[in-house]
Structure formats: C-alpha cells, structure tokens
C-alpha cells in the first residue's frame, strides 16, 4: 500500500530548479532511500514535503492529506515527522524536554505505539541522560535523541535527512539497524535521504536516485546494489 504519493513535484530557488518533476511513491512499512550527489535535490525534496519550502508545481499526498497545503507546524499532526539535516536537537533544552516536545506535537489517535517508556527501552542511553542538557550529548546520542523525539510524535512516515552525517561507521550501523527493526516490528514507513549510499541501501527496500533535481533511477534496493554500472555512475561505490 502506498503511504506517500508524490507527482511532478517541482521546486525552484530563483532561476535554479532544485526539484524538477519528481514523481514517486513510498510504500507503507518500507524504507525508501533517496540517494544522489551534493546538490541533487535530496534535502529540498524533504523540505518541500514538510512545508518548509513552497513548491512551484506538483502534488504530494500522505494518505488522505494534501501535504502541499498543510503548513509545516501541522505536519506532525498529519502524521509526518521530519528530522532535519544536522541533527535538529534543541541544544539548550534537556533530553527530556526535547522528547516532551515530540509528544506535544503527536498525531491525535487512539493507539500509541511509542510512549516515553518504550522510547527509553529502545534508546537506554537517553533514559540515563534524561535530565542532561542536550548540548552535552555526543553526535550519535543526538541522532538517537532526534529519532526518539520523532517517534514520540507517532508518525505514519518518518523523513530522515542524512542521519549518518559525521558519525563513526559503527554508530551509523547501530542507528540503521535500529531503524530497520522499527520498520519490521512497528510497520513504520521511512524516507531516508543519504549520501552514504552503501549504508542506506543495506537497510532500504527501495532506492531512488536524484540527479540535478530529476529522478534518474527508481528501483529495488537489491537491484541498485547489484547493478555495477548504476553504482559507478551515480552512487560512487
């Protein structure tokens, strides 16, 4: 089943087309990896979907919700959680306050999949540090905090922008394994923007390659990994 449906999405910054007629669907309960070089439009795609940047053309729907007419501050209530690039921890607040913000914006629904208890179970480190100010956390801990905070908003889709940025490979592995577990056990849908194509494809079901704002490849993650000419042309490994 499709959760996110994007058609002909175009976003321009002045004369530059950052997204040029992007069309794809993200299937429910799967990880869709969005790959591509610097400036390919990956971050713009997420920022357009979550209402931070206005598109010039196209449609995007999440279930029954028209995303493009939903303001950014209503996104979590519509079921979309966006973890921006560069972590997005509010460093002056404590770990617990950051998490509480996630719950405050939660989608109104009867069933809660993730409570604070559950999140502390998934990320025991955060439980130990709940009263610490967030700027004392390491890079990996911050990434865990923002993912935990996004989960508390009970999203139907989670948008992650470069979660591996600046993290040690071991930590990246930990975080990606955890994400895959959430997808398999909770039926979470993830749209994962990454430059680190190899790691992203290791947990993704579907891969999407952007080049200069256009979708150039959209295929099973397995196929992408196996096709060496594709890998060399766009993914650099």
């Amino acid at each position: 089943m499709t959760v996110l449906d994007v058609q002909d999405l175009t976003t321009t910054y002045g004369a530059v087309r950052a997204l040029d007629g992007v069309t794809f669907t993200a299937p429910e309960g799967k990880v869709t990896a969005v790959l591509g070089a610097n400036g390919a439009g990956k971050t713009t795609l997420l920022r357009t979907l979550s209402g931070l940047v206005p598109p010039t053309r196209g449609t995007a729907t999440l279930g029954d919700t028209d995303l493009l007419s939903t303001p950014a501050e209503e996104m979590t209530r519509a079921g979309l959680a966006h973890v921006p690039e560069g972590r997005g921890v509010i460093a002056q607040l404590t770990v617990e306050e950051n998490l509480r913000l996630g719950s405050l914006g939660a989608r109104p629904q009867t069933e809660r999949r993730f409570g604070l208890e559950r999140v502390f179970g998934l990320f025991p480190l955060l439980g130990d540090r709940s009263n610490q100010v967030a700027h004392t956390l390491s890079g990996g801990e911050r990434q865990m905090l923002v993912i935990a905070r996004a989960l508390l908003a009970e999203p139907s889709i989670l948008l992650l922008d470069e979660p591996s940025l600046g993290l040690a490979p071991r930590v990246v592995g930990q975080i990606f394994d955890l994400l895959r577990g959430l997808v398999d056990e909770q039926g979470l849908t993830v749209l994962l923007v990454e430059q680190n194509a190899r790691s992203a494809l290791s947990i993704a079901d579907v891969g999407l390659v952007l080049d200069l704002g256009k979708v150039v490849v959209h295929d099973d993650a397995r196929t992408l990994v196996d096709d060496s000419s594709l890998r060399h042309a766009y993914l650099g490994f």
Binding site: M75, R77, I90, L93, G105, R149
Partner: peptide, 24 residues
C-alpha cells in the same frame, strides 16, 4: 508548563520547533 516549553523551543530552534508542531 507545556506552553513555556513551546516558547523556549520556538526561541532556541524556530525551524525545528515548527517541524515538531509548535506554532512559532
């Protein structure tokens, strides 16, 4: 209070706060 937490979030990280549903 929750409203105080939202106010601090809006002051420290306006964009992140918006993405968390705070009417900045």
């Amino acid at each position: 209070t929750d409203i105080g937490l939202r106010m601090r979030a809006a002051a420290f990280g306006p964009e992140v706060a918006r993405l968390l549903g705070v009417k900045v």
